[in-house]
Design a protein around this nucleic acid. Structure first.
Length: 562
RNA sequence: UUCCUCGUGGUGUAAUCGGUAGCACAGCAGAUUCUGGUUCUGCUAGUCAAGGUUCGAGUCCUUGCGAGGAAACCA
């Protein structure tokens, strides 16, 4: 992508051209057409942002249309979830919520029209035979014996198909195009199949259902769509898309194909995601490690982060893989500006200020968001005994470690300077408490004598701390390509064993007890976290890590600099 | 051994009619900082290949190489 707004992608370039030439009266009307057979994921978000975004930019409209032509795999559960996800992402379709099933009657009439014009016929070949007759990429196909059936017989048979006279699979309606076509999609594709199945919207009104290629383009046409934007795998279907519209002489939208989103470490195929859920590899479609919008919402992603990401990745025809780091950059960028700050200690060790009066305490003022003055301040309780991060203390620190160590002075964020005096250890040598003295002159965090410290660490008052479970999430797959063959045929060997680390007994500053369910907080110096909307309870808080802060110290350590 | 689409730094994406290859992320270095965060500055690094046309080619032409997709009564 580019920061120059004059640079437009190839889809928008086509649309600009169409508008300038006055095609479709300069109207722009797009649609987002999910099949209600699964949850929306980040890949769909790219398409949603493209379709709804283009409509907004060109003063046009974008419909939400469910492609519900295969009742066996579709369900209302999904139509509701999909609507919630699109709305959450920040887009509205007003009263333009449609279903391909809305058009079943019209689609049927079009089919009869095609039969009458000799462009479609009823075939009795079974699925296997049809496949065989179609031939392969290496050679031409063969005509079905039924290809020459009379119009009258075709019409009669097709009507009886609708009437329910035949069992599943007995007949199909096929377009009569060209069995020798180099594009296999044009070798007499199927238009209708018999399925005695209950449809989630039309009930038992139909026992024949239209195929995607037939239903999709005509639905676009009926809705007055001008630009039908879809992914690259439909490129070979475009001649067919155009064929139906031309034969029927109806409104003809333009299909434009773009490369769908791929991300490193992320599995995007619906089928494989479903297997992760079914096999219990993850906790469900909204497990925060999943790439579904429901999961990302639960994980703490603000929708603006996803939108901003989608705006910046660009649109092209080249099949590419984006680094997950780019998504995380936009996530942190949005969160840094918006997230309220709080202090939390995930791996607590006690810090005792020996010169702080026992049984006393005070409240200190902390800034809620240094990036947003309007966020104001809050008061945080302080006392003699605190919790600090185990990682923020080292008995024998390497050169580049700036935090607490024997004899070392650091600042407690928004509080005082403290100097470490001694360490308490158990028989096994584990640090159980760190002792320090505080400088009462440094209240608020600055020394009147102007002396500096090299580090500021976060803390929580032991007397006021709220306990919580914190779930640290990381990429579900350790390899860039989740289906890397070295991980086995199902990619299971590529799973990241540390994609979820549960920390119990974490200590939070008391204000977090009332954390809002839809707000992602920054735990200072750690990362971004939000209440788990499914599992958290007032008496048993659960927080999810959305993403960590950039951590140059961890990088330093990893390079052996520590 | 068919058809379709596509090849620009590590990743992704720009470059009007052929006219200085730009931006973002990542990486590296430094400055600032009460978050080893943020912010700021700088650096590294690219037109798949070979020919051709041209004063001049990422862009046009030819050939080659490479990648992805296509043979559901799925979408």
């Amino acid at each position: 992508m580019t920061s120059d707004p004059n640079h437009v992608d190839f889809v928008r370039r086509i649309i600009v051209g169409d508008v300038e030439r006055g095609k479709h009266d300069g109207r722009v009307h797009t649609r987002f057409p999910p099949e209600p057979n699964g949850y929306l994921h980040i890949g769909h978000a790219k398409s949603i942002c493209l379709n709804f975004g283009i409509a907004q930019e060109f003063g046009g409209l974008c419909n939400l249309r469910f492609d519900d032509t295969n009742p066996g795999v579709e369900d209302v559960e999904y139509v509701e979830a999909i609507q919630a996800d699109v709305r959450w992402l920040g887009f509205t379709w007003d009263d333009r919520l449609f279903y391909a099933s809305d058009y079943f009657e019209q689609l049927y009439r079009y089919a009869e029209q095609l039969i009458e014009s000799g462009d479609a016929y009823v075939d009795s070949l079974d699925a296997e035979k049809i496949r065989e007759f179609r031939g392969s990429v290496h050679g031409v196909g063969r005509d079905s014996p039924d290809r020459t059936r009379s119009v009258a017989d075709n019409l009669d048979l097709f009507r009886r198909m609708r009437a329910g006279e035949f069992p599943d699979g007995a007949y199909v309606l096929r377009a009569k195009i060209d069995m020798a076509h180099p594009n296999i999609n044009m070798r007499d594709p199927t238009l209708y199949r018999i399925r005695h199945e209950h449809h989630h919207r039309t009930g038992d009104a139909w026992c024949i259902y239209p195929m995607y290629d037939y239903a999709h383009g005509l639905s676009d046409s009926l809705e007055g769509i001008t630009h039908s934007i879809c992914t690259l795998e439909f490129e070979h279907h475009r001649p067919l898309y155009d064929w139906f519209l031309e034969k029927l002489g109806v409104h003809h939208p333009q299909q434009i194909e773009f490369a769908k989103l791929n991300l490193t470490h992320v599995l995007m195929s619906k089928r494989n995601l479903r297997r992760l859920v079914e096999d219990g590899v993850v906790d469900g479609w909204d497990d925060p490690r999943m790439p579904t919008l429901a999961a990302m919402r639960r994980r703490g992603y603000p929708p603006a982060a996803i939108r901003q990401f989608c705006e910046h990745i660009g649109v092209a025809k080249f099949n590419s893989v984006h680094e997950i780091a780019l998504l995380e950059f936009h996530l942190r960028d949005v969160l840094n500006k918006a997230a309220p700050r709080a202090m939390a200690v995930l791996d607590p060790v006690r810090l005792i200020l020996d010169n702080y009066p026992e049984g006393q305490g005070e409240e200190l003022e902390a800034v809620n968001n240094p990036e947003d003055e309007a966020a104001g301040t809050r008061r945080v309780p302080f006392g003699r005994e605190l919790f600090i991060e185990r990682e923020d203390f080292m008995e024998d620190p390497p050169k580049k470690f700036f935090r607490l160590a024997p004899g070392r002075e650091v600042r407690l964020r928004y509080a005082f300077f403290v100097r470490c005096t001694s360490v308490e250890k158990d028989a096994a040598g584990n640090v159980v408490a760190v002792h320090a003295t505080y400088d009462s002159e440094t209240r608020g965090g600055n020394a009147p004598d102007g002396r500096k410290v090299k580090a500021t660490i976060h803390w929580v008052s032991a007397a006021h701390a709220v306990d919580a479970e914190v779930r640290l999430y990381d990429h579900l797959f350790a390899t860039e390509d989740p289906m890397d063959p070295r991980g086995g045929p199902d990619g299971r060997g590529n799973l990241n064993p540390e994609s979820l680390i549960v920390r119990r007994g974490c200590k939070l500053e008391p204000s977090l007890a009332e954390a809002a369910a839809d707000v992602t907080y920054q735990f200072e110096r750690l990362g971004y976290y939000c209440v788990d909307r499914r599992d958290s309870r007032p008496d048993a808080l659960v927080f999810n890590r959305t993403v960590g802060l950039r951590d140059t110290w961890a990088k330093e350590k990893a390079q052996g600099g520590g």
